[in-house]
Amino acid sequence: MKRQSTTFWIGAVLAGMVLLFLLVGCFWTPYDPEAMNASMKLAGVSSAHPMGCDAFGRDVLSRVMDGGRSTLLVAGGTVLLGAGLGIVIGAITGYFGGLADTILMRIVDALLAFPSVLLALVVVALLGTGEMNVILSLGIAFAPSFARVVRGEFLRSRYLGYVQAARLAGASHFRILFVHILPNIRSVLISALLIGFNNAVLSEAALSYLGIGVQPPQASLGSMLADAQTYLFTEPLLCIFPGAVLILLVLGFGLMGDGLRTGRK
């Protein structure tokens, strides 16, 4: 179809590089990310440790690679859960309308009244900390906003000529929803997914920064930043590396989403 804008490609390259870096981290890290080494405590940047070592003498590069992996896992799981729920609810309520729409949208409105971090905090308070609970809580927190976007698109499409034509051509409701309408709203969906992914990354980082996400000694970008904050006076570099990876990842996806949206106009 149409060519994507340069913004999209800059974002794609940026996000691709960070993803590649983190993907490598899934299989190989220069050191064991959890191995402590008292002699290397807060060691600075060197050729052996390109990002230095933390307060327990663990290699920061290895921990960034490992922590990024769990960030990706949580963000990916969140988006999958949230978008899956949101698309189904949004498609049904938007296309069919009626009582189901009224009831489901009331619930969505009530859920939207809780900002996502707050909702995640509630769920964590109820279920306890840990990766799976964070995915569950963020997934539930994100579903309403996906449902909103998808519902709007289906509601708009419902009255378009081609949908009416499809009904007259004998297509079933299921076919209209997923064969006729869905391909036409894919760019909206993709940019919603990208934005959702970014929010998930940021929320996961926030939760583990607060100490209620991934639990130590496992690394996570958020918890690494929380640890680094203690040494902000003496070792400011310690917070720069995990922060930079986080920012580059989010920036990359953000630019991609932006490029898609402007390309659509």
Binding site: L202, G222, Q229, G243, G254
Partner: peptide
Amino acid sequence: MSVPPFFSGML
């Protein structure tokens, strides 16, 4: 927009 508020707080 890509900087999480707690990190911008640290910076």
